[in-house]
Write a protein that binds this DNA or RNA. Sequence first.
DNA 1: TATATTATATGGAACGTTCCAAAAACACGC
DNA 2: GCGTGTTTTTGGAACGTTCCATATAATATA
Lengths: 332, 332
Amino acid sequence: MINSKSVTVFDVARVAGVSKSTVSLVLTGSSKVSEKSREKVQKAIIDTGYIYNRDAASLRSRKSNLVAIIINDLSNPYSAQLAEGLERQIRQIGLFPILVNSGENVDTQDQLVQRLKEYKIAAFIMCPAPGTTAEWTNKLVQQGFPIIHIMREIEGANVATVLPDNIAGTSLATQHILDKGHRKIAFLGGNERISDYHQRLAGFVNTMTAHGTPPPQELCIQSETTRNGGRQAMAEVLAVEPDIEAVVCFSDVVAYGAIEHMRFHGKKPGKDIAVTGFDDLKDSRLMSPSLSTVHIDANKIGIAVCDLLSNLKNGLPTKTVIDVTFIARESG
Amino acid sequence: MINSKSVTVFDVARVAGVSKSTVSLVLTGSSKVSEKSREKVQKAIIDTGYIYNRDAASLRSRKSNLVAIIINDLSNPYSAQLAEGLERQIRQIGLFPILVNSGENVDTQDQLVQRLKEYKIAAFIMCPAPGTTAEWTNKLVQQGFPIIHIMREIEGANVATVLPDNIAGTSLATQHILDKGHRKIAFLGGNERISDYHQRLAGFVNTMTAHGTPPPQELCIQSETTRNGGRQAMAEVLAVEPDIEAVVCFSDVVAYGAIEHMRFHGKKPGKDIAVTGFDDLKDSRLMSPSLSTVHIDANKIGIAVCDLLSNLKNGLPTKTVIDVTFIARESG
DNA sequence: TATATTATATGGAACGTTCCAAAAACACGC
DNA sequence: GCGTGTTTTTGGAACGTTCCATATAATATA
């Protein structure tokens, strides 16, 4: 392959005893080719060891089946879980997903996109890094690149967006906690630079307020969305309100950290302090106590994305909200 | 971009007042083009909004700067950390890494590779899924595809392999535990279908044996390399030897699980039972107690891979062993 | 059987780039 | 100003595919 000339449609055609055009029709799965020819070609493909050259195909056809998934933070387990779901669904509809990682950095994100533009990419699926502007996004859209935002909303961006029902999610979690009789409740984690924070916080605040117990400002504590962020947030909460009864967390990872820290202070999660998460990571079901959390179905997000992929109306902002469910487990 | 004909080198050439060939020379960074021409072309590129078409370039030049990283398991935090390091280094040498996930499944892995073959890929960097055979790998190598294995060795595969010094790693950890005076020591986690298990286990067994205290079979407990695997392995250990003094774990994630489970039994990590990990995940430094572990520098692996990328001698099996360091922290 | 219709098969051009061989421009020494 | 050597520029061909318009084969219709 390095030196030797590669096998082309011409070679396959010669072996199969048909024309290169017929081979091409078989390769693209055309219906206007006889069963006999198809079989001859397919055999010849195997015999010659032919490998389809997508660069040539995409150059000529101006089509591609590559889909770029720009992950915001690979080291966040939820991102990984989401990526897996997206990958699975996208592959199912015959497209080929590739992953790149922006690391929550808006410059890296820009560089990645600039590079990816040079490949024919059928669509960019991205979880925008904090600081992504509507102008930046709209410029891309205007240039004709098909973009789908997931998980996070950028106000003013003319793109299709798929995101979970964040407000409903934390509402359900909060209501569950209230139903259990808890009153001193904190909201832990998240970062105001990202839209989902505002939404998840709103679900909490709204539900608390509707219940007649609006939460004090100092019990809504931002943090990194990492385990360590969760530990720190929990530390802050215990400093402000040592008798806290429950914590509604921005994400499962934050909840994990919060649990670690409360244990450090001798408080038992699910007994002394109720805890809920958001995301439903695989481990949340297996841990002890198992974590009550808001389940987001990564496959559903994948399916919604694929729907958009199929009939992409560029420039028309749409918003697909994926329903979530609250799963009560042992932690609260 | 969807409908309108795209801007090509010809358009740039026209605007710049040079030939398409000169534009091409500028694009490929050739030194044999005058400064004046280069500037004219660069200006024209901006003015026209030209976007380089890598499909065309790669078709003609038979070169590519795409590097596929085939991750074994995206949901494993270490894989993610490793991928980040690889990505960073590979991008630094002007190549473009894309990630795909085999999910530890050998069939998925094969499908991915078959698909990727159709794109021009400069190199395949893969952490082979369990069950990957030397025949499978060698067939690819023979077809001329440049392959680098990382983290795991496949015996008989004629590929360049980059992996951490697993034996030294667990030896260091085990010696540290012995130096602390512990004697009842178990090895937790890992799966015999993967080469690194055998190596890490060997480091443990060798060191224990050299010390005159060869470990009993029943204190070497395999498990999934997940948190939950760690929990189960710890449960097994406590069933077999309730007075266990230390656990040397296959990986940090397994150690996390083991710690969770021992706490459940009222045992304090680092006090009642010493714990060591392997990988040095970001969180291991931040948790409490912080985890003593074997540090693998993902950047070093990336650099070694890039070295191989630069002068890839296909078919000649080489083995690059990356040195590791033991980091003593609070857990043991 | 002849003709209309439909189903298949085909060769040439095109996609946007790089390679190559050759031409043009420039520099230098005499 | 002219030959010589060097640097810079250039048009045509090529990479491997798909598109398209046309040709051929097969089938139906009368």
